[in-house]
Design a protein around this nucleic acid. Structure first.
Ligand SMILES: [Zn+2]
Ligand SMILES: [Zn+2]
Ligand SMILES: [Zn+2]
Ligand SMILES: [Zn+2]
Lengths: 173, 173
DNA sequence: ATCAAGAATGTTATTTTATAACATGCTGCC
DNA sequence: GGCAGCATGTTATAAAATAACATTCTTGAT
């Protein structure tokens, strides 16, 4: 198993390898499950993986439109629904957008750290967060069916970049 | 200070008291801050507090339309923006809806447990969850600016109700 | 090969959610 | 009273998602 790190990747990595790996694993995963990763679904998955930033449905729709002739929203949404059902992508609720899952083999809901500056999103597998949530749910007698944990802010490189650009606390206008 | 419990309330409680309390505190809080809780904003807050279920912007718009003549979306969205800026309401990203905050005096982002059956949402102040998230953020060097923690599922009463209605695992079709 | 059933995609229209841009009105200060 | 700033009204549009129905593709049975 490839075991992608589930964290922020260096900004200049071999992203073609990310895409190829994601598509390969999707193929295998769907084959194993007897699901059909059609040309369209595969292409939509590829577009979701075009970067490590969440992609809006209409971004994907536009990109699809480049290669295929005019595409209508349901085409994209149905593909996204399928990919989500298979755990190949996650929906980022606070952005109305979708991002590829680096670990689709095991069903889970991720914890997303999303940089508002470079728009990179990192999916973490932080058991401690889920445990803390589960403990509260237990106290309430609440049965969790769907988790949404999304943290927006600044990643380390972008924090430094902003610190450099903006005047520090000692700086005077 | 009233110290509302920040959890699921009994289904049949004195909700008029909830509303009155929320409005009173909002008045005081805005007065203290030199902000203007206008008639419109007050009314929108009241409508958000019409229950313990998150309300959509257009639900509120429709309700407003009952008393005042035709109201346009910006009217409602602007009021919601203000209330959110003052911490009087929270936005539930996964539902595109808004809910009153039971503890607006201290700025925070809540943890929401939302029942898909009765639509009741409970805001918890679970430090342990934030700590677990903070620890991961620290490891990443990520600076969190906005938190979204929303758990959808079944509250205890609704879980029992569904268990009764549906056939158990021993039941045969 | 033919057919039928179900799955996937195409197509058209509409709904739901949210914002842009500009006009008008209110409030407090001088 | 006039003005500055904030709040609201108004019109139009953008952005995100879905409903409903038509067509095509796949697969397996005959
Ligand atoms: Zn990559
Ligand atoms: Zn960044
Ligand atoms: Zn109440
Ligand atoms: Zn419930």
């Amino acid at each position: 198993m490839t075991d992608e790190p589930l964290a922020f990747l260096p900004p200049r990595h071999d992203h073609d390898a990310c895409i190829a790996d994601a598509l390969d694993r999707a193929e295998r995963l769907c084959a194993d499950r007897g699901e059909r990763l059609t040309e369209l679904r595969r292409r939509v998955l590829e577009l979701v993986w075009s970067g490590h930033a969440p992609q809006g449905a209409y971004d994907i729709l536009d990109a699809l439109g480049q290669t295929r002739g005019r595409v209508a929203p349901p085409t994209v949404y149905r593909a996204l629904d399928f990919l989500q059902a298979q755990g190949l992508i996650h929906r980022i609720e606070s952005l109305n957008a979708f991002i590829g899952c680096p670990a689709p083999e095991r069903r889970h809901s991720g914890h997303f750290f999303i940089c508002r500056r470079c728009r990179t999103a990192a999916e973490l597998d932080a058991r401690a967060i889920d445990r803390a949530i589960d403990r509260e749910a237990g106290r309430l007698g609440f049965v969790i069916e769907q988790r949404t944990v999304e943290l927006l802010g600044l990643c380390a490189p972008c924090r430094e970049a902003e610190a450099t650009a903006a005047p520090g606390p000692t700086g005077r206008a």
